[in-house]
């Protein structure tokens, strides 16, 4: 079956991203397809490559990134929600005259249409939030 996942909260503050990760991993283990994972609201913060969690804790961003590489997951960050919160990739940074960018290479920035498309294309959409 084809699943899509929406994550609405940032890492560490809420369990949403952890629950979603465990769900996605279990779905992949069962041979399901993950059509897309869409990050919205504060969920866009899951995409920053600059987090430095304590060594004895999980690294949420790296974990998503590794899973994405292993399974070619489509991790999409909402551009409007990201810009509001200072989450930029190289393109967005230069286009908006900012001196830095922070989005991990495993994530891509795109519009809300990607969320709607995921709802249309996937058999199930599961929302993780607060």
């Amino acid at each position: 079956m084809k699943f899509a996942v929406m994550i609405n909260e940032g890492p560490y503050q809420h369990q949403s991203s952890d629950s979603a990760y465990n769900f996605v991993k279990a779905a992949l283990d069962k041979g399901h397809e993950i059509f897309r994972i869409f990050f919205y609201h504060d969920g866009v913060n899951n995409a920053t490559r600059l987090t430095i969690p304590p060594q004895d804790d999980r690294n949420i961003v790296e974990r998503w990134s590794a899973l994405a590489k292993e399974h070619e997951l489509d991790l999409v960050v909402c551009v409007a929600a990201a810009q509001r919160r200072g989450l930029l990739d190289e393109n967005e940074a230069s286009r908006n005259g900012k001196d830095a960018n922070n989005i991990d290479e495993s994530f891509r920035i795109s519009g809300l249409g990607q969320l709607i498309e995921a709802g249309i294309q996937a058999d199930r959409l599961v929302v993780f939030g607060d």
Binding site: N22, K25, A26, K30, H32, R124
Partner: peptide, 11 residues
Amino acid sequence: VDYAGFVDLVA
């Protein structure tokens, strides 16, 4: 249920 069971239920 565990996470695998969660996946089954969603399906």
